[in-house]
């Protein structure tokens, strides 16, 4: 596999995409970043690639701290379970029962 563009010192697309994590996370050395920027400025496909790559990480961040529905039945079972279990010595707690709760709504 050839890794470097033989016509110039610019990164190839392959090198560019290989380095996107550090680029997107802002953990790249300035000199490497400058070279990558040079490639990006001349390569629309890699610009598209970078935009969609960073868009994924931004969308993933939006999943942080999202609440999920917990059915009332599940909450009731959790409460009963905790009341039973909290005063038992730890780690000698008996094996937990496999709950037969239904899926969150």
């Amino acid at each position: 596999m050839k890794f470097r563009n033989r016509h110039s010192d610019l990164f190839t697309c392959e090198e560019c995409i290989h380095l996107l994590l550090d680029y997107a996370d802002g953990t790249m050395a300035p000199e490497v970043r400058r070279k990558l920027d040079e490639h990006l400025s001349a390569c629309p496909p890699c610009q598209h690639y970078l935009r969609s790559y960073t868009s994924c990480t931004e969308m993933a961040r939006q999943l942080r701290d999202q609440e999920a529905q917990v059915p009332a039945e599940l909450q009731d079972r959790l409460k009963s379970f905790l009341r039973e279990q909290v005063n038992l010595p730890w780690p000698k707690t008996p094996r937990r029962r496999r709950a037969k709760w239904s899926r969150r709504s």
Binding site: T12, I17, H48, S55
Partner: peptide, 13 residues
């Protein structure tokens, strides 16, 4: 030669 082998369909939110 290290260039992308196919056109990239770009998108962003």
């Amino acid at each position: 030669d290290g260039e992308l082998a196919y056109p990239i369909f770009g998108w962003s939110g």
